[in-house]
Design a binder for these strands. Sequence first.
DNA 1: CAAATTTTGTAACTGTAATTACAATATCTG
DNA 2: CAGATATTGTAATTACAGTTACAAAATTTG
Lengths: 292, 292
Amino acid sequence: MPQAIKNRPRLSIAEDINRNIDYLTRTERQCARVLLSNYPFIGLEKVASFAKRAEVSAPTILRLVGKLGFSGYPEFQQRLREELEERLQTPLTKHEEPQSALEDDDFLAKYSNSVERNLSRTLKALPRAEFEAVLKLLSDVKRPVHLAGGKLTSTIADYFYRHLIMVRPNVRRIENDSYAWSEHLIDMDRRDVVIIFDVRRYQPELLELARLSSQCGARVVLFTDQWLSPVSGIANHVIPVRIDVPSSWDSAVSTLMVVEAMIAALSNRDWSRVEARVKAREKLAEKSRLEN
Amino acid sequence: MPQAIKNRPRLSIAEDINRNIDYLTRTERQCARVLLSNYPFIGLEKVASFAKRAEVSAPTILRLVGKLGFSGYPEFQQRLREELEERLQTPLTKHEEPQSALEDDDFLAKYSNSVERNLSRTLKALPRAEFEAVLKLLSDVKRPVHLAGGKLTSTIADYFYRHLIMVRPNVRRIENDSYAWSEHLIDMDRRDVVIIFDVRRYQPELLELARLSSQCGARVVLFTDQWLSPVSGIANHVIPVRIDVPSSWDSAVSTLMVVEAMIAALSNRDWSRVEARVKAREKLAEKSRLEN
DNA sequence: CAAATTTTGTAACTGTAATTACAATATCTG
DNA sequence: CAGATATTGTAATTACAGTTACAAAATTTG
């Protein structure tokens, strides 16, 4: 079978090589082994490096790639990258063993694990400067803050709102209904801060809101997923979080974590002021209760 | 510092970007964000692909790469590959490395760590039988479900509500205002399920609601913290979660995780029914949009 | 063992990716 | 708001990676 090896449904390149290794010539086999030996990194290098490592000539590599059913080296590399990306997204199933016993019958554990993964990836990818910048904006109590979210994320906006209002004055919730926007936009200028939550299945209304706010000169802060909402083009600060879980729905856990961390940081920063505010509010609540 | 950013000892490119993101221009920052958002794969593509994904021109990418201290794109990619290889070779060590060093000056990391700790402790302490039991109640679409929460936790109740309503019919939100309770209580019997969220600083009203519901014969499900709300005395099922973090406020992350896991489990269990429901709802939304 | 056949490397070639120069645009500043 | 400065994209250029043709070497086969 010196012709091109048929490309089966969806084998990984490594598996494909293993199955068809006898159809390869001696030097080709050598290349294949080198590739498999620390798969798939050598395949991501240039042809020349690969060839050198395998101690063969470049054309031999290309012939191998051809036999594996690819039309060219770039296509082969593209596929390797896709595989790698996929593999890195689900490390638990392939990489790890000890938990697998639990995982199968313990859905909660499985879910929790993937949430934990999201958290650490979020942590890693989140630019601290952005986090700090947003914190700085929120610390400035002179700046009015407006919060908005999408169909599902507005819950998180609400959570943020309820806590922020305990920590500082001048916070408002933008209703989901776009008819009410004008109430916010009318007084908006460069002092204002608009916080928008927008994840997958990005809502066009939110983009519109961001645009209008930005035109007023307001600072726009965006919480979004790793694929970035279109609002990211407008926003002054972007906080990307991980939302992918083994579910039909997205996870808001990482978003919530960042929001909570912001509130915590704000509170800790000058607790005395916050404390006074909380106490004052409690007193007021007490009073209004007695009057009822 | 608009010149090339100094290349410190051995920062990963991601970290380097995170530290120096404010020295980048707007579009460069956009590139950086796209790269970080699913690091490092876009960086392994050709410049053109990267540029397209980031919605900028190729030279912008190259300028970014230059600022990061690389002499050219190939060098940058080489480094990315090395990082990736290194990272994949050490599966477990990596997880522990950032904690100690960063914690001091990185509040976000500190917070995230304590949240992660909460998650695993929650996972450990959560009785699977309770989880399953609640799941079973929710699977039974004939049972009306009512959701209520406290001053801060009602946001989570709301999150649960919005997802449940997509998964099954017969779900209602109990307003925070106790005047509205009668609307729910009037028709309540042993088929009904009342889900209550109540954590530290337990609200007496919620205890009252639980009592009344229970008297109607309804099943009461309680989400609470590790110290258990007084509602736990009445509730048929109790889901305890961890809420303690280095903050003046409590964390709702673990609660949210369990809620999400429930929704995911429900959806996965019989997806075909859920899918039909989701599609039907989309169709209706479409229709009503057209009519406006 | 020689002819046929396959395999492999060399070297020339080609196409495309990375780079650069420069003009257009946007942003800042007095 | 104009001039200055910084930023960004377009288009031309360069360099090099990937490809191909072909000849040399190795292997197979009669």
